[in-house]
């Protein structure tokens, strides 16, 4: 089962530039939460804070409280945090020199899985969960780069799921994909929320409306409004939300 996250008074900076201001948010377990907002509004920074990736940037700084099922992320080893809170990026980034199998096995090996039978089982489980198994089961030794863009992205999702995180962060996971691949990723998100908590950044309003249970609108580093997705897309409370989702700016 996925776990919930709570964010309180989160502020983040790049150098002197503050990119997030006093963000409070409750992310419910086993739900899909979409983060929307115009470019530069801080949405990617926000999800990078959720697995402590933001602070890996040399000039980055973060203040505030982020908890995973009640436990502060800042009391944990960052490596453990990133295992519990996985991430998938906009552009599929499989390890180019590795086979399809090794792309997934590498994370498991680093996590201490040694027995080859267990490795095989867990690679298969991850690929099945990412709805990729049937397409690659006969060519697991082939390089990951032989896959299509959509398949590569599902491979990256499988790689993130293999280490069994509690939360999966997705930063525009379908923006570089064709409509059919996008649909498969969306179906996949719907599937995996049974087991994981999903937070997705998207520029595609319809995508947020289709797949998210909750939607949060960020603007200029502030969380303007967060509500049930249906509410957000039929009668948002804040005029800035309405203006953004109806294309009046952004």
């Amino acid at each position: 089962m996925g776990k919930s996250m709570t964010v309180r008074r989160l502020n983040a900076w790049y150098g002197a530039h503050q990119v997030l201001h006093e963000i409070d948010m409750d992310i419910e377990e086993n739900r899909v939460t979409a983060i929307i907002g115009p470019s530069g509004c801080g949405k990617s920074t926000f999800i990078r804070c959720l697995n402590r990736m933001h602070e890996t940037h040399p000039q980055a700084r973060v203040e505030g409280d982020i908890r995973l099922a009640g436990e502060s992320l800042f009391d944990l080893d960052p490596v453990d945090v990133r295992r519990m809170v996985g991430m998938v990026f906009q552009k599929p980034n499989p390890f180019p020199t590795m086979s399809i199998f090794d792309n997934i096995a590498i994370g498991l090996k680093l996590a201490g899985v040694r027995r080859s039978s267990e490795l095989r089982d867990r690679v298969e489980r991850a690929l099945r969960m990412a709805a990729l198994w049937d397409e690659v089961k006969d060519r697991l030794a082939k390089p990951a780069t032989a896959l299509s863009g959509g398949q590569q992205q599902r491979l990256c999702i499988a790689r993130a799921l293999a280490v069994e995180p509690e939360v999966l962060l997705m930063d525009e996971p379908a923006s570089a994909l064709d409509p059919i691949s996008t649909m498969r990723i969306e179906e996949l998100i719907e599937e995996i929320k049974q087991t994981y908590t999903v937070v997705i950044v998207t520029h595609n309003m319809q995508q947020a409306a289709r797949i998210a249970d909750k939607t949060a609108f960020f603007y200029q580093g502030h969380l303007i409004e967060m509500d049930d997705t249906t509410q957000m897309f039929t009668k948002p409370k804040d005029k800035r939300t309405e203006d953004y989702i109806t294309g009046r700016f952004g």
């Binding site: 039929t234 009668k235 109806t246």
Partner: peptide, 9 residues
């Protein structure tokens, strides 16, 4: 246009 919010209403 895939209208939302006030447009959709």
């Amino acid at each position: 246009q895939q209208p939302v919010a006030g447009d959709l209403r």
